[in-house]
Design a protein around this nucleic acid. Structure first.
Lengths: 356, 356
DNA sequence: GACGCCTAGAAAACCGGTTTTCCCCGGCGG
DNA sequence: CCGCCGGGGAAAACCGGTTTTCTAGGCGTC
């Protein structure tokens, strides 16, 4: 006999019909009020009565029923290549956070070792579990890329962009490389090495292109490049090769913070001092960088904002806007710590090459 | 006019009814076949006809409809305190992976800065979005803890356990501390400092208790303890205080890898050598540890397995089993690198105190 | 030959929303 | 006085599954 004065903490889930009864209207009206249906005309008094009922009963719509009735699932999915990579941790954080702000739940899938992730991701869509996809792990050969264009499923590419997709959310990577080089040039460096990432990955290419372009513009010798995985071991190995093959290098620019840690280790192992013998600078910054030995000079990138922007862009698509590329604003900032200094060969005399 | 020989890649989602028509049966039969309903009797020939139809049409059930009809959502949610903390990255990885193995999707929520996460989590349940909860961010004062006991929602506590909940999934933390101390004792250390975590957090307490208990058993002076946040800065600050207040310390045991990095930095800043003046050992190991300066001795913990075990335990609850505590097996393993060595005061003479 | 039972599958109710259509009623203009 | 219009809300169809109930036929039994 629970009627007008229903319990404030109902035992059972309350449904739309309960709210309707409680407010003395039909459930369709409640639904339309809650969804801000503009075609509904309703007295202010009735509306508040309904909203009160919603609050009193602690009504929470059943997601499944909602999705079934044709509305959206209000859920997104994020596909990332490596959860333990701090780059993706922060993208994920930004994305999850922004999704919540916009009232979406976020599903997570990791594109790691195990096969079948493409299948998994396609299933999320096919089973109507999510409204859209955030893809941060695109590789040129990724099976997912083959199946996406046909499907009408909204999606964006984050960080690892797909050329020509028209739905890339990215950072100013070239500008970051430019900033790194500017910092090294100002210190007087001219022979520079670059620890690059796995070939074919979009950020790898951008970072390298930005560096090479800036080097040409500055009129310095072409930087030497070695590639490695995006982890400490990859940085270690690449730096070891650089040091062995190019003893004249005075600075190394690493593609990620993890690689930079490997670079520091390799330089130590080679018996060289940082920054007296070799300067090290890294793309991407974290508090961690300040506690390394020596503290690492790095270029701070707005990765959380990247994740947020990706969600924003995806939501725009969900609202009907055509997909478009987004370049996350925010100029790269060089955080100077102890790992960079003037080259060993002498004071920054060569830097005079840069006018003014 | 799509009939018997329907297109292999149908434009539209195919529904249960499409499969049924295609196979010449009613949808209820299809549903019961797909769900392995034991009460259904069916000819083998019909069953295969149905399964073929499912495959031909690429049928994928509508998650929402399914959830609505009373079945489960086949989704779980994971609440973690900090995505960028590598500890939680790996727990998350294990959980996401195992969820996939069991056919569940994983929703992610981060309990960071923004308020209202408890609300968000409760909503996930109230809106029938997930079948169960993995809670890795329990604090004694967490609002979520107040609302969980009443609700009949299946859940487990991961890593940060809740005493007496009877649904804790945890590691052998005390044994890890014991192993760390054993390693230091074997090297001859007797005056040991401990960089602990935020008070009240379960893993903090366990690590400390394990260390203190082992110290008493070994008959060495009570270890000195300082607490700090679970990050580099926290480790740095705590270690700085330890070194200042207890100049006789010869070794420091840090609660997490991030803190240990701060400890290394603090020791360097104090002008001390590692391990000649001070040995450093850390709870939790990562490849990163091998590239620090010096390479860090650490105790490897099976965090991915922890995440997997948590999903397994939660699934058991979903299948009707009563909740129970789970201690993830796997003895802690000390990975010896360069940051630990004999104490400065001399050879491990004092260690003779340990018999045999 | 009638009855009951088992097999194989059909039918229908229901889950909790959304959305379109429809209706009632009061006011206003002619 | 009648018809029309628009505001306010009721009714009902529908989304795509799950689950319980029901039925038609075949067969063994007495």
């Amino acid at each position: 006999m629970r009627d007008a004065d229903a319990p404030l903490h109902p035992k059972q889930r309350s449904r739309l019909i309960d709210v309707a009864n409680h407010a003395g209207v039909t459930k369709s009206v409640v639904s339309r009020v809650l969804n801000n249906d503009r075609t509904l005309s309703i007295r202010e008094e009735t509306r508040t009565r309904i909203l009160d009922a919603v609050r009193d009963l602690g009504y929470q719509p059943h997601t499944g029923a909602r999705a079934l009735a044709g509305a959206s699932t209000r859920a997104l999915a994020l596909l990332i290549p490596d959860l333990t990579n701090p780059v993706y941790s922060r993208i994920t954080r930004g994305a999850v956070q922004q999704a919540r702000v916009r009232g979406f739940a976020m599903l997570l899938a990791e594109d790691s070792a195990d096969f079948g992730v493409d299948r998994q991701f396609a299933d999320l869509v096919a089973s109507h579990r999510v409204d859209g996809l955030l893809i941060a792990s695109a590789r040129p050969d990724h099976p997912l890329l083959g199946m996406l264009p046909d499907s009408r499923i909204p999606h964006v590419f984050v960080n690892r962009v797909v050329a020509g997709s028209g739905r890339n959310i990215s950072l100013q990577i070239e500008a970051a490389s430019q900033a790194a080089l500017d910092h090294l040039l100002a210190l007087g460096h001219r022979r520079i090495g670059h620890v690059s990432g796995p070939e074919q990955l979009a950020p790898t290419v951008s970072r390298r292109a930005g560096l090479l372009g800036a080097a040409v513009a500055a009129g310095i010798p072409e930087p030497s490049i070695e590639s490695g995985e995006f982890n400490e071991q990859g940085g270690y190995a690449a730096a070891t090769r650089l040091l062995a093959d190019h003893p004249d290098l005075t600075a190394i620019y690493a593609s990620t913070l993890n690689q930079a840690i490997g670079v520091l280790s390799a330089v130590h192992a080679a018996g060289l001092r940082i920054p007296e013998d070799i300067s090290v600078i890294s793309y991407d910054d974290l508090p961690l960088a300040g506690f390394l030995h020596p503290p690492l000079t790095a270029i701070a990138m707005p990765l959380m904002e990247l994740g947020q922007a990706a969600v924003d862009a995806l939501c725009a698509q969900l609202e009907g806007a055509p997909p478009e590329d987004v370049l996350v604003p925010g100029a790269p900032e060089v955080v100077v710590r102890g790992s960079t200094g003037p080259p060993r060969s002498g004071p920054p005399a060569g830097a005079a090459k840069v006018p003014s």
